[in-house]
């Protein structure tokens, strides 16, 4: 049998565009794994996370960074969070399961989401036209995360700092989502 190597292609073909000092860039090197709490197993998972990552299970709306800074946990709903970390190899679930064991239920989400980073002085004014949530630092400070809808598409928005946001949307509608964000940035440029 011939030795075949498959090359992964990112959902948005590695998109990058500058709008003055504001950049819209696809993030292609991150893995995303959902961690769900087994019924009645919240405390066990919490202590496994504390032991391995030095952080507790994040509440919805907040994020937690592992003590070595390599994994960011996004609190998206009660009893579930997403782990975001640098992709290495083909099995992101293994990277989490090796550490947390069977204290949680894990699902690889990496290929299901298109990720964009919008950063620069126009980021907030572009987002406030399509994002129904208030992004003022008082309401949505650094490290906040939320799941919402922009242009009718489900989006996870993560605040890295006051003018840098990570946006994730479904891979199947990624070009439409990119179009929405790109158009909004163009409209405020």
């Amino acid at each position: 049998m011939p030795d075949l190597t498959l090359t992964a292609s990112p959902p948005l073909d590695g998109y990058h565009k500058q709008f003055g000092d504001t950049a819209l860039t696809e993030i292609g090197d991150q893995a995303l794994v959902s961690i769900a709490v087994p019924l009645g197993g919240a405390d066990a998972l919490d202590s496994a996370m504390t032991g391995a990552y030095g952080t507790t299970f994040p509440a919805p709306g907040s994020t937690a960074l592992s003590k070595d800074g390599s994994v960011r946990f996004l609190g998206l709903q009660p009893d579930q969070c997403f782990a975001l970390f640098e992709l290495a190899g083909n099995d992101p679930v293994e990277a989490i399961a090796n550490v947390l064991g069977d204290t949680g239920y894990y699902t690889d989400q990496s290929d299901s989401w298109a990720m964009l980073r919008l950063s620069g002085p126009l980021a907030v004014s572009a987002l406030e036209r399509i994002c129904p949530l208030g992004l003022a630092p008082a309401a949505f400070p650094q490290g906040s995360v939320a799941r919402t809808a922009m242009e009718h598409l489900g989006v996870i928005i993560l605040c890295e700092n006051e003018d840098s946001y990570v946006l994730m949307s479904a891979r199947s509608s990624a070009p439409s989502f990119l179009h929405a964000v790109e158009t909004s940035v163009e409209n405020v440029s």
Partner: peptide, 11 residues
């Protein structure tokens, strides 16, 4: 109750 005020379009 967990996330604060959200638009009804999300529900």
């Amino acid at each position: 109750p967990l996330l604060g005020p959200r638009d009804a379009a999300e529900f």
